[in-house]
Simulated assay, not measured.
Amino acid sequence: MTTLNRHQARQVAFQTLYSLEMNLDANIEAVVRQVLAGDPEIEISDTLPQDVLDLVSAVNDHKNELDLELSQYLAAGWTIDRLSKVDLTLLRLALYEAKSTDTPKNVAINEALQLAHDFTGDDSRKFINAVLNKALTQDN
């Protein structure tokens, strides 16, 4: 079985969710296998990490609800459709983890920002931080 640390698992989940956003007909397991094969730091085996598959499936299954919630925290005039797919994928993943798993909110935010550091620019990181802080740290 492929064993990943928590950051690696989130990164694989993020990359898989992004790929699924680009190809809505893709098979989750095939995409996870492809993402794992593309990372030289991860030793893959025949068995895919179940925690990654579960997280990807859950976020993918709840996209509409996550988008509806996220849209409440966007600046006036902004809609989900205007967001970059990378930013939207990171926001969905962090919001789902913080609200629907035992991941502490600050960890979900920090992990999203770390992934944003690796996959986006400064403006996106600032945007993601602002939206997640509104969504997860204010009394809702």
Rank of each mutant, 00 (worst) to 15 (best):
residue 41 E to C: 04
residue 107 V to N: 05
residue 83 L to R: 01
residue 90 L to C: 01
residue 79 T to P: 06
residue 68 L to M: 12
residue 1 M to L: 08
residue 27 N to W: 06
residue 118 D to I: 05
residue 137 T to Q: 12
residue 101 T to Y: 08
residue 103 T to M: 13
residue 10 R to F: 15
residue 126 K to M: 03
residue 50 Q to G: 06
residue 4 L to Y: 02
residue 4 L to R: 01
residue 58 A to D: 14
residue 10 R to L: 10
residue 108 A to D: 09
residue 84 S to Y: 06
residue 22 M to Y: 05
residue 30 A to P: 00
residue 35 V to E: 03
residue 1 M to Y: 05
residue 87 D to W: 00
residue 62 H to V: 01
residue 69 E to A: 07
residue 91 L to G: 08
residue 135 A to R: 09
residue 19 S to R: 14
residue 136 L to R: 09
residue 35 V to D: 02
residue 106 N to Q: 11
residue 86 V to E: 10
residue 88 L to A: 09
residue 28 I to C: 10
residue 82 R to M: 14
residue 100 S to K: 14
residue 9 A to F: 05
residue 105 K to C: 02
residue 139 D to H: 10
residue 77 G to S: 07
residue 106 N to K: 08
residue 40 P to E: 07
residue 94 A to W: 01
residue 8 Q to W: 02
residue 68 L to N: 13
residue 102 D to I: 12
residue 127 F to R: 05
residue 112 A to W: 06
residue 16 T to G: 03
residue 44 I to D: 03
residue 126 K to Q: 13
residue 125 R to H: 11
residue 92 R to K: 07
residue 86 V to Q: 08
residue 52 V to Y: 02
residue 99 K to Q: 14
residue 59 V to S: 07
residue 74 L to T: 02
residue 103 T to K: 07
residue 116 A to Q: 01
residue 94 A to C: 01
residue 58 A to C: 07
residue 40 P to Y: 02
residue 115 L to Y: 03
residue 76 A to D: 07
residue 105 K to D: 14
residue 47 T to H: 14
residue 64 N to S: 13
residue 11 Q to Y: 09
residue 54 D to L: 12
residue 84 S to P: 08
residue 130 A to P: 03
residue 39 D to Q: 14
residue 101 T to L: 08
residue 16 T to Y: 00
residue 128 I to R: 00
residue 6 R to G: 10
residue 20 L to E: 14
residue 44 I to G: 12
residue 32 V to G: 01
residue 75 A to H: 11
residue 122 D to R: 10
residue 75 A to F: 10
residue 54 D to M: 08
residue 40 P to C: 02
residue 73 Y to N: 06
residue 23 N to H: 09
residue 16 T to H: 03
residue 24 L to I: 04
residue 82 R to C: 14
residue 66 L to K: 08
residue 125 R to V: 07
residue 128 I to K: 00
residue 77 G to K: 10
residue 64 N to M: 14
residue 25 D to T: 09
residue 81 D to G: 12
residue 61 D to Y: 11
residue 80 I to V: 15
residue 30 A to N: 11
residue 66 L to A: 06
residue 114 Q to F: 03
residue 140 N to P: 11
residue 63 K to P: 00
residue 59 V to I: 12
residue 67 D to Q: 06
residue 36 L to S: 04
residue 126 K to I: 00
residue 75 A to Q: 12
residue 102 D to V: 12
residue 110 N to F: 03
residue 98 A to E: 02
residue 80 I to L: 07
residue 109 I to E: 15
residue 106 N to A: 09
residue 12 V to L: 07
residue 130 A to H: 11
residue 123 D to C: 00
residue 134 K to A: 13
residue 66 L to E: 09
residue 72 Q to V: 04
residue 55 L to W: 03
residue 63 K to I: 09
residue 34 Q to D: 12
residue 13 A to K: 11
residue 123 D to F: 00
residue 116 A to H: 00
residue 54 D to K: 06
residue 74 L to E: 00
residue 8 Q to G: 04
residue 111 E to A: 14
residue 118 D to F: 04
residue 81 D to T: 13
residue 12 V to K: 03
residue 110 N to H: 08
residue 37 A to W: 03
residue 91 L to W: 03
residue 36 L to P: 04
residue 60 N to G: 10
residue 121 G to D: 15
residue 9 A to Q: 07
residue 36 L to I: 05
residue 114 Q to K: 15
residue 131 V to T: 04
residue 124 S to H: 04
residue 131 V to D: 01
residue 57 S to E: 13
residue 58 A to W: 05
residue 134 K to L: 10
residue 37 A to Q: 12
residue 74 L to Y: 03
residue 53 L to R: 10
residue 89 T to L: 13
residue 58 A to V: 09
